[in-house]
């Protein structure tokens, strides 16, 4: 890569610093258990954040992903419980549940996307609305309580979160695949190039024969699918869903995208940066929990400082580009 500047490397440097700091503060930091823990927890937000990178790069925003995850989890659990008598505990039941999750995610993303591209409503407004709708629906379906997966199904489904391949947990593997695919898509495909073009000036894109609405619609659909995928991996962790599932995930995902160097106003996206951003956020959380230096209650404050710092660094970069 050319043009490696301080601001490009900033997030990476911060990540390395955090790893060193973590190791210095607690010898358990490098244990396989802890690393797996950090990465697996990053995976859900991570997959969503990769999708969010495309939405933001093309000039959009999606505030509904956290609520959407809760809604998908609720629908998935309801569907699996309902299908249990017919299919019995086994792989078909789990596959059917996964199908439901992806289907609901696709429809939710399509809904957001159509309202934004066809009805031409601001993405902020649309997804602020659907954010409330999804969360309210899941709370209503659960009657204010919790939707739980049948006990037997839960035991069978557990390995999807806790199991893995060659000692690497499934969520980590899936996240890694999504991250690589996302990076390639952003950097080396027409879709990624079009996202950047639309985000930097949608008029120019339209005059250049880019199907602006279609590309934007796809970003929301892909994000919906990724939320579905994240939910598939998240449900076996607790086996339940409630009105507070996925709370504030949208903010963590957006924060990760911004820390990673993607411009909030669109036009410039960096998937690998988003991955680094997600890791930074979960490392801060992890280190605060491991070390008793600072109260874990201050986690949000420290993440807030990091976000603001990242944006200040970005501004330094863009003014240098303008010269």
């Amino acid at each position: 890569m050319r043009n490696l500047s301080l601001s490009t490397l900033g997030p990476l440097a911060a990540l390395i610093l955090l790893v060193i700091l973590g190791a210095w503060l607690n010898e358990n930091f490098y244990s396989a258990g802890n690393i797996t823990n950090v990465l697996a927890r990053s995976a859900f937000i991570g997959m969503i954040a990769v999708g969010m990178t495309f939405v933001i790069t093309s000039g959009g925003l999606d505030l509904s992903v956290g609520s959407m995850a809760a809604f998908i989890a609720g629908m998935m659990i309801l569907a699996m419980n309902a299908m249990l008598p017919r299919l019995g505990v086994g792989i078909p039941l789990v596959l059917a549940g996964m199908g439901v999750a992806l289907g609901v995610g696709l429809l939710a993303g399509l809904g957001n996307g159509l309202l934004i591209t066809r009805a031409r409503i601001e993405p902020f407004i649309v997804t602020l609305g659907t954010m409330g709708i999804f969360r309210s629906l899941v709370t209503w379906i659960a009657d204010g309580g919790t939707l739980s997966l049948d006990f037997g199904t839960r035991e069978f489904y557990r390995p999807v979160y806790y199991g893995g391949l060659f000692g690497i947990a499934w969520p980590i593997i899936v996240f890694a695949i999504i991250a690589v695919l996302g990076e390639v898509a952003m950097r080396h495909t027409r879709f990624g190039r079009y996202c950047e073009a639309i985000g930097s000036n949608d008029k120019v894109a339209r005059y250049s024969a880019v199907k602006v609405e279609r590309v934007q619609l796809w970003t929301y659909v892909i994000l919906g699918l990724l939320v579905g995928l994240a939910t598939i991996l998240y449900v076996p962790r607790l086996g339940s869903a409630s009105g507070s599932t996925g709370l504030l995930w949208e903010l963590e995902a957006i924060a990760a995208v911004i820390i990673g160097g993607t411009a909030l106003k669109g036009g410039y996206g960096r998937v690998w940066g988003t991955v680094v951003g997600v890791l930074i956020l979960s490392l801060i959380d992890n280190i605060l929990n491991l070390a008793d230096l600072v109260s874990p209650y201050l986690n949000g404050a420290i993440q807030g400082v990091i976000i603001v710092l990242a944006v200040v660094l970005q501004r330094g970069k863009s003014s240098a580009e303008g010269r």
Partner: peptide, 9 residues
């Protein structure tokens, strides 16, 4: 500038 080219690209 507004319809033809992406100035930042």
């Amino acid at each position: 500038k507004e319809r033809g080219l992406l100035l930042a690209k």
